[in-house]
Write a protein that binds this DNA or RNA. Structure first.
Length: 624
DNA sequence: ATGGGTTAAC
């Protein structure tokens, strides 16, 4: 084949865009019996060029032999000697209809050894060939590799290749399914989600094997909206959900505090003939424990009873969840009861059980109980882990026992454990919150020698410490130092600095900091606005405070109880009880329930003015 | 060939 033939072929293609031609109608080579989609892609042009100069080609039997015998150095030499384009060689493999294993081997070799990146079209032709040969595990691992290295290929172009490279539709489904799986497995959730959506558009059928990991990722990344959408699409697409699919969804909804929806899904699953199991109930109980509201532990306990009535036996994890709930509720009596109940049921407390309970005791100031529980764990053959010690250090620090807290570092090492960044952060935070800045900085300096890098929390604690002492210049210096360690200040960092400036009656300066954080793309949160408002209120600049509230609402954050309390306090302190009262009324109109702080603030002011409170909720209505 | 539930710090 010479260049004249090539040119005539190229001209034919230009005048027949989109037409598929058989190369062998133009070329007389016996093995080029494939069709070529038009217009040509860059890779095809290369292929064509090498086809057109037959001299430059290594013939397929030779290629096959070299690859199957893994004579790679010779293959490399042949390719170089022939001047052939390695990318085009893959096409020859696929065209020749030889064993797809060999094409796969060549693909991997040329990728790893020659650094070749094959066009999508060939990549998915190879996937199709493997699927045709029913080599499904190979398709799976091939796509897994593809997903790991592919960077910048859009889901759209990938689907185009899958559907246009000539393979069957059934295999298309299998390939797409494994693609979704590969994305999910490699943490590329967004790509997986897009592939899921597009699979629906193309009509490819997916399986739970791929959808479950995708749902799991969406749940763990807090993308409940997408998670629910996937669920609905799966139902619509008649993908048969199993107990894990439902549990993943329920757990995701519970974590997003959507308990009612989670309950609905439990009914859905029963309707689908799938029975809830211990995992289902554990997720629900945990959801109740971690939800707000005064009755949360009551609901959690009711769910446990419901579970037992349904003849599902609670396991260690069930009791751990419930016990931790009571610990967080500062109800250690109930927590200990659960601890005993689980043992009565023949279940052995595990590491998590002890860690939770130790944490509970630490937080309720019963350090000695916490310490003796660690001893109990050791004697029952359980080895404490770093969480155990972090919890204890936190407990010591909160109770002013710095010596004991620091000694734990030695205990950790003696136990063969390694302190982590949390360990150091707890220690540093304990110091900074009790005026021991120098100590905190010493610990900070010692982190490097232990091979632990400070994180944002480390810096936030240190900055808090400096601000407490009014050392704003040093705090700002540290703020700058964070960037040198490639750590970005977060909302909390800004809130600390803003709060500190406000305390120094420099609210204007604090306001500029708020502007700056917005400018760099950080979204202020409720605390940010409330802190600044409080600052303006303290300075008696109520107009500015009200303006901040407007700004906050413009940013889509609604005033909550804390916000109202700040403003009410501000007005009260200025003796403007009428304004305070109208804010209180606004709260009530919005259906918000003022808390004790709200009333305490107003009561203080009213008593000052000689009012006598009664028990009625509207007792503070001074305009009346 | 696959997936679900529990513990630590600002």
């Amino acid at each position: 084949m010479n260049s004249i033939t090539f040119n005539s072929l190229a001209r034919f293609m230009r005048f027949h865009p989109g037409k598929v031609v058989r190369i062998d109608s133009f070329l007389s080579l016996p093995w080029t019996t494939t069709t070529l989609p038009l217009p040509l892609f860059a890779g095809d042009k290369l292929a064509l060029r090498s086809l057109c100069s037959s001299r430059s080609l290594v013939d397929v039997p030779t290629l096959t032999e070299l690859v199957s015998k893994q004579h790679y150095s010779e293959l490399k030499a042949r390719l170089r000697g022939s001047g052939s384009v390695p990318a085009a060689v893959l096409r020859q493999f696929l065209d020749s209809g030889s064993d797809p294993d060999l094409a796969l081997r060549y693909f991997r070799w040329s990728r790893d050894e020659l650094g070749l990146s094959h066009p999508l079209e060939l990549t998915f032709r190879l996937a199709h060939s493997l699927a045709d040969a029913k080599k499904y595990p190979k398709v799976r691992s091939f796509l897994d590799e593809f997903v790991r290295v592919s960077d910048g290929d859009t889901v759209s172009s990938i689907f185009h290749s899958i559907s246009n490279c000539g393979g069957g539709f059934c295999n298309g489904s299998i390939i797409v399914d494994m693609l979704v799986w590969a994305y999910a497995k490699n943490g590329k959730t967004q790509m997986g989600f897009e592939a899921f959506k597009r699979a629906g558009d193309y009509g490819y059928k997916l399986s739970v094997v791929s959808c479950n990991p995708l749902m799991s990722n969406l749940a763990n990344e807090g993308a409940v909206g997408d998670l629910e959408w996937v669920y609905k699409e799966m139902i619509r697409g008649r993908i048969k959900l199993n107990v894990v699919s439902f549990n993943t969804l329920i757990s995701g909804l519970c974590k997003a505090r959507k308990l009612n929806k989670a309950r609905d899904v439990v009914e859905d699953m029963k309707a689908c003939g799938v029975s809830p199991n211990v995992v289902t109930y554990n997720a629900l109980i945990d959801g109740h424990c971690k939800s707000g509201g005064l009755t949360r532990m009551y609901k959690a306990d009711a769910t446990l009873k419901e579970m037992i009535e349904s003849k599902i036996r609670p396991n260690e994890i069930t009791y751990n969840i419930l016990m931790d709930g009571y610990c967080k509720d500062e109800n250690m009596v109930a927590a200990v009861k659960v601890f005993e109940e689980m043992q009565r049921q023949g279940l052995k407390p595990n590491l998590v059980t002890y860690n939770s309970l130790i944490n509970g005791h630490c937080n309720s100031g019963e350090i000695s109980k916490a310490v003796s529980l660690r001893d109990q764990m050791l004697s029952s053959g359980l080895k404490p882990n770093i969480i155990t010690y972090n919890v204890l250090i936190h407990g010591f620090g909160k109770n002013g026992m710095f010596k004991e807290a620091k000694e734990m570092l030695d205990v950790i090492e003696k136990e063969g454990l390694v302190p982590n960044v949390v360990t150091f952060n707890i220690l540093i935070d304990a110091c900074c919150n009790s005026g021991k800045n120098e100590e905190a900085f010493l610990i900070h300096a010692s982190m490097a020698s232990k091979g632990v890098l400070p994180d944002i929390l480390t810096y936030n604690s240190l900055i808090t410490g400096l601000c407490r002492e009014g050392k704003m210049d040093k705090a700002e210096k540290l703020f700058g130092e964070m960037k040198d360690n490639s750590l970005k200040p977060n909302v909390v960092t800004y809130n600390i600095l803003i709060g500190s400036l406000c305390k120094k009656r420099e609210s204007r300066k604090a306001h500029r900091l708020l502007d700056r954080m917005v400018k760099i793309g950080l979204s202020p949160n409720h605390v940010t606005y409330d802190t600044l408002m409080d600052g303006y209120c303290t300075e008696g600049n109520l107009r500015a405070a009200v303006k901040v509230r407007e700004l906050m609402q413009k940013e889509g954050l609604r005033a909550n109880i804390a916000t109202f309390n700040v403003l009410i306090k501000g007005f009260c302190k200025q003796g403007k009880l009428e304004n305070a009262n109208s804010l209180l009324n606004e709260m009530l109109e919005r259906g918000m329930v003022p808390n004790r702080t709200t009333y305490d603030i107003i009561r203080e002011e009213m008593l000052d003015k000689g009012f006598v409170p009664d028990i009625d909720g509207h007792m503070y209505n001074v305009s009346g």
